[in-house]
């Protein structure tokens, strides 16, 4: 038996070595990507990157237009987030609640399949859908509707809807039976139980999911590319105007930059976007860890 034993030990060592190799490769690749960005971009970070030559307060109060800074793009991204999450949130919450609390098993498995399919649709296809909506509206409203902020917001809402549904559903389903039953046994109706017991009990998980959905809105480029984002639009004026956004600025500048300063701004924008997305991720993680009472 000795040869096979030696063989077994070799396999063991090989496996450990392989796993360490994979882990190190992954860490190094990540470090290279982030390190490269920091190395190239950190020195442009500062108020000038965002506000250009305009005083920050003037820009924030819309007194002066910012031409050479990221302010319009950042504001565009912010508006997109508000619109998309604002649209998807009530619908997603209600759908998640229905699936967790009311649906029969068959309805539930059908709904969850459909939500999974929605979640898997590539974001460019969601963008194409948004574009199709524009085409229809354009047709019916006599050419007044063009790709714009409102359409992008709605299309993005489709993108984040499945996230919100899923987190709401899972958060509610995790609630232990005794907590679920206490309210009901005291005579509360199902709706009262939901409102006063179940939702407060799962609020932290739901919040964590919403924060992740915000990150998804901030980073997505493909959807807005087809539904109204442009390279220079200034601050978005209304729901029906074209707009700028941070991720699109990065994409656009990477292929169309005309001088090194512009490229440096793109590095800065990439760092800012990275900070926003990882920041949101960490917030979500902390909410989940700190306030979760069940696991």
């Amino acid at each position: 038996m000795i040869p096979s034993r030696v063989n077994g030990e070799a396999c063991d060592r090989l496996m450990t070595l392989f796993c360490w190799g994979c882990a190190l490769t992954l860490t190094l690749v990540l470090a290279a990507i982030l390190g490269f960005l920091f190395f190239k971009g950190w020195h442009v970070l500062g108020p000038k990157l965002i506000f250009g030559e305009v005083r920050p307060l003037d820009a924030l109060l819309f007194k002066k237009r910012v031409f050479s800074g990221l302010f319009p793009a950042a504001l565009g991204t912010f508006c997109l987030i508000c619109l998309a999450v604002g649209t998807a949130l009530p619908l997603g919450l209600a759908c998640g609640i229905y699936m967790a609390e009311y649906a029969s098993n068959r309805v539930k498995s059908f709904f969850s399949l459909m939500v999974d399919i929605l979640a898997a649709i590539p974001s460019i296809v969601v963008g194409l859908f948004g574009f199709s909506i524009t085409v229809f509206l354009h047709h019916y409203f006599g050419g007044r509707i063009l790709p714009c902020l409102g359409i992008s917001g709605i299309a993005l809402a489709f993108l984040v809807l499945p996230y919100i549904v899923k987190t709401t559903r899972i958060a509610l389903e995790q609630i232990p039976l005794e907590i679920r039953m206490t309210g009901l046994s005291l005579g509360a109706s199902p709706l009262q139980n939901l409102r006063h017991v179940l939702i407060p009990a799962s609020l932290s998980d739901i919040m964590a999911g919403i924060v992740l959905a915000i990150g998804r809105c901030a980073e997505d480029t493909a959807v807005i590319m087809l539904t109204g984002v442009v390279a220079t639009a200034g601050v978005p004026k209304s729901l029906f105007s074209p707009f700028e956004a941070l991720p699109f600025f990065i994409y656009y500048t990477a292929s169309e930059y005309s001088d090194p300063a512009e490229l440096e701004a793109a590095y800065g924008a990439a760092l800012i976007l990275l900070a926003i997305c990882t920041g949101l991720f960490i917030i979500s993680f902390q909410i989940k860890r700190r306030y979760n009472s069940f696991n």
Partner: peptide, 13 residues
């Protein structure tokens, strides 16, 4: 954490 990194940043880098 990697799941939070935007794809446009991967493309850019």
């Amino acid at each position: 954490l990697m799941t939070a990194i935007p794809t446009v940043i991967y493309g850019f880098v």
